[in-house]
């Protein structure tokens, strides 16, 4: 059986979590490539349309962090 590789979209806030993810990158922390980061200017921008659209496009999980 083929190994399950979840597809995850992370909506990260430009000012905090995206900066933190950048820092994780600069510190060469390993992050599973299943996570696909989409930068937004604030996590409060994320509404139900965007969440449903993301699932509709095949996401197995969504991370909203801000």
């Amino acid at each position: 059986m083929k190994e399950f590789r979840p597809k995850i979209v992370g909506f990260l806030c430009n000012w905090c979590t995206y900066a933190a993810a950048d820092l994780a990158g600069a510190s060469k922390q390993e992050i599973n490539p299943s996570l696909n980061v989409v930068r937004v200017m604030c996590s409060s921008r994320i509404d139900q349309n965007l969440l449903l659209n993301t699932y509709y496009n095949g996401a197995d999980g969504i991370l909203v962090a801000g």
Partner: peptide, 17 residues
């Protein structure tokens, strides 16, 4: 949200997935 419109984000999401 100018420069972060729904269509723009939908496109990005669709492709990264």
């Amino acid at each position: 949200s100018k420069h972060f419109t729904n269509p723009q984000l939908y496109q990005e999401v669709k492709e990264v997935l």
